[in-house]
Write a protein that binds this DNA or RNA. Structure first.
Lengths: 340, 340
DNA sequence: GACTGGCACTCGCTACAGTCGAGTGCCAGC
DNA sequence: GCTGGCACTCGACTGTAGCGAGTGCCAGTC
């Protein structure tokens, strides 16, 4: 494990060159491009050690070296500093996000912005319902036995569901139902509503009981259990950059994984708060994405986190740059949400 | 132009074989696989004519023949019968679509179903707002100067927008506003609302005038002018089937085109009612999709049309099969919508 | 002891030649 | 008008050879 400073410098140089050129890098070109102050032969010795330790490998005997997942990991953890954004990028972010009129708009703009800045596939999770509070519940009668439930969350998210009532409910009763659910649920965290919803049924007048029961089932189902999470995706065309070299020639598995919302949520769904997470190659547990890396972070108004966002690309990506972008975009989005 | 029956049969055989095998088809294999009742030499003569007329071409001298866009066009128009669905497919459609709880659900299930059945990229347009009628407008006060406008359309579509009011509006006034907009707009076709919305401003009491003006602007903006159209996409991974042979080796342009909602809408946005539209290769006007074909149709409850859906794939696709699928799915979705 | 220059070796890439065979166009004959 | 036959084309594949980038190792130097 004894990697002295120069060996680390060599690894850094290899990663940087490989990311830039997309070609295995050899000892000679390495000393030419970076001022390592030693000869190619020395670098070769260092490379041999790095290879033994599993940080780099040779695609075939007598080709240059390529970083392994482990090498990228070391690079990200210890050898790179987050690249500050250029003024142009900073401006792009601001310009892109002002003028968003509602949450949908914010999410869509964000995901496109991120895809454009990083030139990778971008993913943005809508603010998680589980982390949202109920701001208002509206019941709109569609017919006497049909109700449209519209839930507005404090994060700006709006969900609706059609409810089929067991029996006709007069308009006055709908008013009562509306008052009751709002009194009870507004302001509460969605993840914690189940007991409240249950109480709602227990406490409501017998007259309202059947309707309330149905309503509560739907509320629980839609808002808490079911496909509560949504996300937006952009920049899939970026996967085709770098010819077919990345992803060993087949985009298939990657495209398939991108169609699975569950998979993506697991990847960018925030775990630890406010740090930027980097998953490199094998580290993520999706088989189809063994050749991909993910950079993600949480976002939200102020210091709270309501959802995740990130980018996905080949392991051979510009980590410092992408990490910087993801963070910056997350911060801007957070500010935007805080304003509402 | 004089193509006798046998020449047409040869063309049909070429298309079918090429679609199935993905390889240029020669005269000998053709007579072996189809009972044409003539010798390879004769077929060769016919092929020469077909080539002269532009229906087929040779990738290189002395290879087999491949249909041109023009050849596919003739095939679709005159040489193919729509393939009836297999019972399994029929069942798959039914099973997939029952249990959809709301419009979002219907659209998502539909697009996945279509992608799975056809093994192509599927696109489903949400019911167009322009073709929807207003069922209900809800105004939810978020704060004294903020209003959430929720519009529920008869097609099940729900749109919301945040409105920033010029001055605080008391709760009673909100009630009045709600009553007014609903009285005026419910039941009207969205495309025809602009004059109604204008009238709304003119007729409202001076006290409500400022709020109503803002409200009307937003209504017009969101519901009529702006991104009124939405769509869902699935099956992009299917583009990678057939190796890199389709799309001459580069998915890039296709993936890019698929990210442009406007482009897709133009492709599947219905024009003539209720017919199935087939655009082959060059026929569609998007440069990036010159190598792709689109099969699309309109759908809606009963005989009205509220949106479009379709599939996109290489020109070398199973037209009869895909046409059948697209039609069948559109019909089922229409029935589903009619039930609501 | 660490670094360096030199050297033999590996091996993928490219170019080139040769062969194979699927497929064609044409033509004479039925 | 169809057919069998035939010469021809040309891409795909195979094998060989040379090139060159890159390596590992070793002996020599500071």
């Amino acid at each position: 494990m004894g990697l002295d400073d120069r060996k680390l410098a060599v690894l850094r140089a290899i990663v940087e060159d490989y990311v830039a050129t997309q070609e295995p890098v050899g000892s000679k070109t390495l000393v030419e491009r970076h001022q390592l102050g030693v000869s190619p032969a020395t670098v070769r010795n260092d490379m041999a050690v790095l290879e033994e330790e599993g940080y780099i490998r040779q695609p075939h005997t007598s080709a240059g070296r390529v970083p392994t997942d482990r090498g990228y990991r070391l690079f990200v953890d210890r050898l790179s500093r987050i690249k500050p954004l250029s003024p142009a990028e900073r401006r792009a972010i601001e310009r892109f996000l002002v003028g968003a009129v509602d949450l949908d708009d914010v999410v869509h703009r964000t995901v496109r912005l991120l895809a454009q800045l990083t030139r990778q596939v971008a993913v943005v999770q809508y603010p998680s319902l589980a982390r949202s509070k109920v701001r208002h519940l509206e019941l709109v009668p569609i017919s006497t036995t049909r109700l449209m439930v519209v839930m507005i969350a404090d994060t700006g998210r709006v969900e609706q569901r059609l409810v089929e009532l067991p029996a006709p409910v007069p308009a006055d009763d709908v008013t009562d139902l509306r008052r009751l659910v709002n009194e009870k649920l507004v302001g509460s965290q969605l993840a914690e509503t189940p007991p409240l919803v249950q109480a709602l049924v227990d406490e409501s007048a017998p007259r309202l009981r059947p309707a309330m029961t149905t309503l509560s089932t739907v509320l629980l189902e839609t808002l808490v259990e079911r496909h509560e999470e949504r996300l937006a995706l952009a920049g899939q065309a970026n996967l085709t950059r770098g010819g077919l070299l990345d992803f060993q020639g087949s985009l298939r598995p990657v495209l398939e994984a991108l169609e699975e919302e569950v998979v993506l949520l697991k990847l960018i769904g925030e775990t630890e708060p406010s740090t930027t997470r980097v998953l490199i190659g094998d580290e993520n547990e999706v088989d189809n994405l063994r050749a991909a890396s993910v950079v993600s972070t949480g976002y939200g108004p102020g210091s709270t986190i309501v959802g995740g966002l990130g980018v996905l690309g080949p392991t051979r990506m510009d980590y410092p740059g992408n990490i910087a972008m993801v963070r910056a975009v997350a911060r801007y989005v957070g500010e935007l949400l805080a304003q509402n």
